[in-house]
Design a protein around this nucleic acid. Structure first.
Length: 424
RNA sequence: GGAGAGGUGGCAGAGUGGUCGAAUGCGCCGGACUCGAAAUCCGGUUUACGGUUCUUCCGUAACGUGGGUUCGAAUCCCACCCUCUCCGCCA
């Protein structure tokens, strides 16, 4: 959520900045509600003040044993007027909150213009794609051996976009997740967390999945209410600080978790149907940082590096893309995507996305820290990044490390997790 | 799943219809005393929103959440959520 003050005092400028990411802010609608709100709120508060002072007077009179009938007559009918005003005010505020919750974050100043992924800018590139002296297979062909990667079995159990892993590939997949978790906890200072996979609607609203993107989520009936399966551990990790006031010494707070992620993939029909690039269920090692407002830009660079180190240690060529305004996610002010080289597609494909969400999620969650200089609680900044997507990392390892005979060489850093096994 | 207890400010803990945003203690911040510290004493110490003569003052709201009763609710009524204890079940 944006600072409400921006919508009141710098509406046109805010609208211009949002237009850069393709969002049309309804300024005249907002202005209309705002002036109405001001009027009704002032009236309501005056009525409340009247009620309070009169009620207090009645209390005093009674304590003195005086007659209160005259005072009581004075407030007759006030309650109904007040109730009507309060209801009207609540309606207006709910309407304005609904609008505010649907407005995306403002792009940072150094985010390039652009409407879609063609506007993204390559910021860095690492590694050289390997040249093969045989016909490369994609991960689907490579995984077909011994049914180690079995989409048909997944479909039988759950439908399209679900995959069963077995044997060496299943182990490799687990090794990848464990390697990433160990790297981030041992060398990058992140605290390993184990979090709920089902969260309530408030959590989803906190990180920005709700109210606008409900169709992307799986929901689960739960008692009288409902829960949602997390589409990323970002939701659980970031919401750990919701409605908290953190001491300055607790920041930066760096957390990581390895979880399954569930995405309905509404609207992605037909894209990446083959293989496990795009699944309804996949695993990811997520990084989340909670920092002081002044530190988020530097933390963003640091976090992205943490994700890049994963790929470097795995020996996977990648490039870093700075996303343009039009291609960023709802909550992000600035995003780097890491794209890994996939030989079968002869191109780079997204494997990580690291975003600085500034105070956007913090405001929705009311996540704050106590600023020692001011003594006041102030909103924190939140960042999240994939470090990295495990399923896609598996695809990348399989394809980049494939051998002529269809076997896959295990990257050095993963061998300790596979009892020293050199190929699967 | 069954039975019971309870949710009040950073913490502990009073308050069961009326000048209660809320006693008291602890903690924290500032000051006095001291060579310095401890102890002691004095003062201060929630958050959000709105207005404003906009680093000032005023107002409103908040005692788990949401409703209700009332001129007036932390206090009474209803529903829900959560926590704790015991029993059962279970990985």
């Amino acid at each position: 959520m944006l600072d409400p003050a921006l919508l009141r005092t710098q509406l046109d400028d805010t609208a211009r900045r949002l237009a850069a990411r393709g969002f049309a802010l309804q300024t005249s609608v907002l202005n209309g509600w705002e002036s109405e709100r001001k009027k009704v709120q002032t009236e309501t508060q005056e009525l409340q003040n009247l009620r309070n002072t009169r009620s207090k007077a009645i209390g005093i009179a009674k304590a003195r044993g005086e007659e209160t009938a005259a005072l009581m007559a004075e407030v007759a009918g006030l309650g109904d007027r007040l109730k009507a005003n309060e209801q009207r005010l609540a309606d207006i505020q709910a309407k304005m909150a609904e609008i505010a919750l649907g407005i995306p974050n403002l792009p940072a100043a150094d985010v390039p213009e652009g409407a879609d992924e063609t506007g993204n800018v390559e910021a860095d590139r690492w590694g050289t794609p390997r040249t093969f002296d045989f016909a490369v297979r994609d991960h689907v062909e490579l995984g077909a051996r011994e049914g180690m990667l079995d989409a048909e079995a997944g479909a039988r159990l759950s439908g399209a976009r679900f995959t069963v892993l077995r044997g060496g590939i299943a182990r490799l997949h687990r090794a990848l997740a464990q390697f990433m978790l160990d790297l981030h906890t041992r060398e990058h200072g992140y605290v390993e967390c184990n979090v709920p996979l089902l969260v309530n609607p408030e959590a989803m609203q906190g990180t920005g999945q709700l109210p606008k993107f409900e169709e992307d989520l799986f929901q689960v009936p739960f008692g009288e209410g409902l829960r949602y399966l997390i589409p990323t551990a970002e939701v659980a990790l970031t919401n750990l600080v919701r409605e908290q006031i953190l001491e300055a010494g607790a920041l930066p707070l760096r957390m990581t978790a390895h979880t399954p992620c569930f995405r309905a993939e509404a609207g992605s029909g037909g894209r990446d149907l083959r293989g496990m690039i795009r699944q309804h269920q996949f695993e990811k090692v997520e990084l989340v940082s909670i920092v002081r407002p002044g530190d988020s830009a530097a933390e963003h660079e640091r976090m992205t590096r943490c994700a890049e180190v994963v790929l470097e240690k795995l020996g996977l060529p990648y490039r870093r893309m700075l996303l343009c305004a039009g291609d960023m996610g709802f909550a992000a002010a600035k995003t780097y995507d890491l794209e890994v080289w996939l030989p079968s597609q002869n191109t780079y494909r997204e494997i990580s996305s690291c975003s600085d969400c500034t105070d956007f999620q913090a405001r929705r969650m009311q996540a704050r820290w106590r600023n020692q200089d001011t003594g006041k609680p102030e909103l924190v900044h939140t960042l999240n990044g994939s470090g990295v997507a495990v399923g896609r990392a598996l695809v990348a390892v399989m394809e980049n490390y494939q051998n002529r005979d269809g076997s896959i060489t295990v990257p050095d850093v993963l061998r300790p997790y596979l009892d020293g096994c050199e190929r699967v």
